[in-house]
Design a protein around this nucleic acid. Structure first.
Lengths: 123, 123
DNA sequence: AAAATAGTTAAACAACTATTTAACTAAAAT
DNA sequence: ATTTTAGTTAAATAGTTGTTTAACTATTTT
C-alpha cells in the first residue's frame, strides 16, 4: 500500500490546519505523476464519484448510510472506500462498530489548484 | 460518440467567452454522473495526465510535438487524444497536415468548481 | 514524381477493475 | 446468550483499457 499524499494525522477532519494552498500544491507537484493520476482514477468511477459528491455535501456519513444512499451493497462500498482512502481522499473515524467517512476537501482543492496554477503561468 | 460537455464552437481556443463560471458548473451538474466521471477517467491515466499538464503550460502544441515531449509514439498519442477530445478537454485546430491541440481550461475549472461549490454549501 | 512528415485506424494482447456472492469478525441490542 | 448490525475479505467473472505493431491516407518537401 502506498502512502497517501495527504497526511491524515496532520490534517484531521475536524481540525484542518489553515495552511496556504501553495504548500499543498507544491507537495502534489513533487509527487510522481502516477500518484496524481491515481487521485483522478479514484474519481473516475461513477459509483465512487457518487460517494465523493455525497460526502462533499454531508461532511460525515457512516458506511451503511453511504451504501443505502448510493444504492450499493456494503461489500461494494467497502471496496470503493478502500480505493478512496488509499489516495487520501477519505478520512475515516471509528466509533464502536461504525466507521464515519468524510471527504478530504484539502486534497481535492489541491488537485484543482495544481492545474489552475499551470494554466495561469502559461508560456 | 457522446456529445462533449463543452461546445467547441461557442468556446474556441483563441476566443473563449467570459461567461460566469456558475453557468458552466450548472451545465456540468445537469449532466449525468457517468459523463462527469468520464472527465476524471480522461485524467486518470499517467500518459494522458502528462499531455494535459503539458498543454496547461504551452497553450498549443501539435500531435508530433506532444508525442516526442511525452515520449510516446504518434499512434499512442492519437489514441489518448481521442479520449481527451471525446470528453471535451481537448480543443483541436487543423493547419494543413498538422493538428494543433490546446486544453479546454474552462471545462477543467468547471470540474474543480463543481466540488468546491458542494463543499461550501454543506449541510 | 518520389520521399518524408503528420496523423489515423484496426487487430492483438496483457493487465487491470467493477461487481456479485459468500463466508467471516466484532460490536450492539434484544 | 442469541440475534442484529456494521464492516471486512476473498474468489470468481465479465468488462474495460493501455500499449504495440503494422498498414493506411493525406499533406508537404525535395
Amino acid at each position: 500500500m502506498e502512502t497517501p499524499l495527504s497526511d491524515p494525522v496532520s490534517h484531521p477532519t475536524s481540525t484542518r490546519s489553515p495552511l496556504p494552498t501553495d504548500l499543498h500544491t507544491a507537495k502534489l507537484a513533487k509527487a510522481p505523476i502516477e500518484q496524481r493520476a491515481k487521485i483522478f482514477a479514484a474519481l473516475a468511477d461513477p459509483t465512487r464519484l457518487h460517494i465523493v459528491e455525497l460526502l462533499a455535501q454531508h461532511r460525515e456519513l457512516s458506511g451503511s448510510e453511504i451504501a443505502t444512499q448510493v444504492g450499493i451493497s456494503l461489500a461494494l462500498f467497502c471496496h470503493h472506500s478502500k480505493i478512496l482512502a488509499e489516495v487520501g481522499l477519505l478520512d475515516i473515524r471509528r466509533d464502536g462498530q461504525t466507521k464515519y467517512n468524510s471527504l478530504n476537501q484539502t486534497l481535492l482543492m489541491d488537485c484543482c489548484n495544481y492545474f489552475l496554477q499551470r494554466c495561469e503561468q502559461q508560456s
